[in-house]
């Protein structure tokens, strides 16, 4: 474990807590894409298949349980909670996320570290996470006024993978044979997808203006 990875995990945890805070306290999911939340639940479900077979550390298992539990409960909240589901705007959240799942599955079947079910599922989860934010970014472009919690949620979610990139660089230089093209390329693509959001987020913070993404 290094400071970059710990900071990355804490930033990821913070993004989940901000989203839970928004949904649980103000009982609203305005501006949040259910599609992205469903994709993230799928990412964790396919990535943490080894949660009961390979014990790495208490930290690792605890964080996996937190991410699995929070992602599925957020999907449940938006879909089933009588008050929260009312603030979900289905007509705006129209990204066809199946168009993301199928190509990621095909790519995982072609490019993986070992052609076993667990490894293919793991590669699938890495590829899917790289594009899971797309429905949310599309929704943000359609949302006129993005509330602070939603903006912070997306910012933290993007920042965590950027910190992981620093972690991979650090591990490359400090550990022998630490080379993982699947996570490196996907993580870079994932972070680059946030580039324009980061730009407008920083601009709105610098000029103390409401966050607005151009349509």
């Amino acid at each position: 474990m290094n400071i970059f990875r710990l900071a990355g995990d804490m930033t990821h945890l913070a993004s989940v807590l901000v989203l839970l805070l928004k949904i649980h306290t103000i009982k609203s999911c305005a501006g949040i894409s259910l599609k992205t939340q469903e994709l993230y639940a799928l990412v964790f479900a396919t990535r943490y298949l080894d949660i009961f077979t390979d014990f790495i550390s208490l930290y690792n298992t605890t964080m996996k349980l937190i991410f699995l539990g929070s992602s599925f409960s957020i999907v449940w909240y938006i879909r089933n909670h009588k008050i929260v589901s009312r603030s979900y705007d289905k007509s705006q959240d129209t990204f066809r996320h199946y168009f993301l799942i199928i190509p990621c599955l095909l790519l995982a079947l072609l490019v993986n570290e070992k052609f076993t079910f667990k490894e293919v599922m793991w590669a699938f989860s890495i590829y899917l996470e790289a594009v899971a934010i797309l429905p949310q970014l599309v929704l943000l472009q359609r949302t006129r006024n993005i509330d602070n919690l939603t903006g912070q949620y997306v910012f933290l979610l993007g920042a965590y993978r950027a910190l992981y990139i620093l972690n991979w660089i650090y591990r490359y230089f400090t550990e022998t044979h630490y080379v993982h093209w699947i996570t490196w390329v996907s993580g870079l693509v994932q972070t680059l997808l946030y580039a324009d959001f980061f730009y407008y987020y920083f601009e709105s913070w610098k000029n103390n203006k409401k966050l607005q993404l151009p349509a």
Partner: peptide
């Protein structure tokens, strides 16, 4: 094996 390295991350 190298794949162990990647799996210790979240």
């Amino acid at each position: 094996p190298s794949s162990e390295g990647a799996k210790d991350e979240l």
